[in-house]
Design a protein around this nucleic acid. Structure first.
Lengths: 202, 202, 202, 202
DNA sequence: ATTTAAACGAGACGGTACGTCGCGTCTTTGT
DNA sequence: ACAAAGACGCGACGTACCGTCTCGTTTAAAT
């Protein structure tokens, strides 16, 4: 069965797909060029060759616009799962690293998150849509590891995710220290075995 | 007739200590009320009963002003050290938690950090002064633990600090999930022993 | 003894005279160039090399700005009076002609009047200040003529003024017919003696 | 299936007479409500229940639309002529008074005239069609009076018309003074006999 | 004790961007 | 097929703050 078009009687959004994409592209370009704080709707409009009105018609605020633009860029997780906990964890950490510290406009995530904190509506959709989508894979992967007995029944999955995401986020945006290629391995090692020496083999 | 003027100023540039404090206090108050993004120099000046000029005389930018205001609020670490690694770590994590997720204006930290990312001069002093001051205690505490043999020689101290600070930062500012009272214990436990079950007692 | 505030009447408007004049000049220039309807505050600001804010600080609306600009251009009446009714009337009609149909920005008067009709505050000041100032001379001149017996006691002075001003206004702005040099004489002649032939000499 | 649609129009361009009238009616209604300056095409379209496109299809500009709307409201002159100059003049002045100062949307005439001054095409048709139509009756009436010897051969008919129309226009739109019921009589008296006392009877 | 130079409050200034409104054109959609 | 509905690029609106710049007025230090 082809279209199950849910549009009722008529009209619908009627929005111009090309224009829409031009706006998102201009937004991402300007995030790279000038950063979130200096990004202006007028600037996006000019760069996209579009009227300001068109932007305001579809996005209620700069935050919402940037949020959608970032959504199109950030991965929701690796595609495959090996069943090997350490390997799967490593894959997931690497995706997070790419999302939060990759070369292309990662800086904006911080400013976007900052902006979002004061905008309740946007905060809702940021957490419900954006974040939840990107945490789902990791959560399910860990849940499977628990059910397979690779992790204890009482494992705090949220804590694990906050630790790896937080470490990446904090290092890349707050301390600014370089993130070495073995950073994901180290994080995974610490997550699994901690820092203290083990009596027996690891 | 005794002066009702309590001013006592002296050193270097003739700046008025009362005025200075009124500005910082107004800044902190407005951070709480309206957030970093909506904080304006004009607003601070009005709230402090001060001319804009006076603010611009002493701080080059909104970021610098907020940075100094936050510095006066955020702790540099616990005063004492027990020598018990787990206890000392717990104390330090709790201070970080208070700094980043305490009730009073913690939100601004995120926005401040976001702003700072595009302001190179400010970024420098933020990392060299503000952050380094607040990381020094934890680093030295961990270094002592290593030298006492409580932690392996090759312990990645920066990684440990990024993990606890990042977890707190990420949960309080990004996911927004509640932080339970046992959160520091859980973080410390994971930092020390990881998630995997140990063969022998922990 | 508390400080008695020595500030009493000072500060005042503190406005920049040069800027003020540049704005009025730019306004008059643009009235000539593009007309009242197409005159924009942004245009005036740009031409005067001034921020929009400065204009809005001192004038509440485009109408008020144009009103003041026109006030500086339009004469309040001839300086001298001969006592010869026909001559004095002629002088006054000629001033009105120059005001309403002179080469420099007379067109704007019509549009200004049109705008003013929907702006009650501006209408008040237009009639109380602008118009009254420009009608005073004619009214007093005619009153003196009445008291000298040159005109009947029951002369309707307002009607006379409306007739000559209206004729000029109507011809120059509504019908657009050319106004010949003898137009003032013809108006004065009609005002004094009407159109019908007189039994005796005129 | 027979149409229950009562629309019947078709001649020339296929324009819908009902729609056309609805637009003109909405235009007049909005002229009264908000005035010429605040009248918008979008407002007319909304009030008439019509698409903007339809308006733009038939009228090139707001001025043209208002011009046509006003044309349908303003009289071209009294129907009968008595041959008594004073009476006929009085009738004509009264019609002009009703057109320019009557209760229904007279204000718009001024604004329309103002707009028209900068729109050359519209100005042409305003003067050639609208005005000429409404001045024809007065002109012909006066010409007949001249040919009957009731007025001198060299009477300046245009001047007479400008004087009564101008006086009405000026008083109602510029000075704003009230127009008493005997205003037409006074104007006619002055037009015919002037202000100066006559030696013999009037 | 008086002078003097700074720091101060106030706020005007030239600007930039805001978010809104209406323009006149062009496209889609439903009857 | 036509016209309503309305999206579009555009330009001006009037507002809020920016950071700079005079203005007098304190006020503490150096005469």
């Amino acid at each position: 069965m082809p279209t199950k078009n849910t549009r009722r009687s008529h009209s619908g959004p009627k929005r111009d797909a090309q224009t829409h994409e031009a706006i998102l592209a201009a937004t991402l370009a300007l995030l790279d060029d000038v950063g979130y704080g200096s990004l202006t709707i007028e600037g996006v409009a000019a760069k996209a060759g579009v009227g300001k009105t068109t932007i305001y018609r579809w996005w209620p605020s700069k935050g919402a616009l940037v949020g959608e633009a970032l959504s199109t860029k950030l991965s929701k997780g690796p595609e495959e799962e090996t069943g090997d906990l350490r390997q799967d964890l490593l894959q997931t950490v690497r995706v997070t690293l790419e999302n939060y510290a990759g070369q292309s406009s990662p800086v904006a995530v911080l400013a976007f998150a900052a902006h979002v904190e004061r905008d309740f509506d946007l905060l809702e959709s940021f957490r419900k849509d954006f974040l939840a989508d990107r945490r789902r894979h990791g959560r399910e992967m860990l849940e499977r590891a628990v059910s397979r007995g690779q992790l204890p029944q009482d494992t705090d999955i949220d804590l694990m995710m906050d630790i790896w995401a937080g470490a990446i986020f904090y290092r890349s945006h707050i301390t600014g220290d370089p993130i070495e290629p073995d950073f994901p391995e180290k994080v995974v090692q610490l997550l699994l075995s901690g820092t203290l020496p083990r009596r027996s083999s690891d």
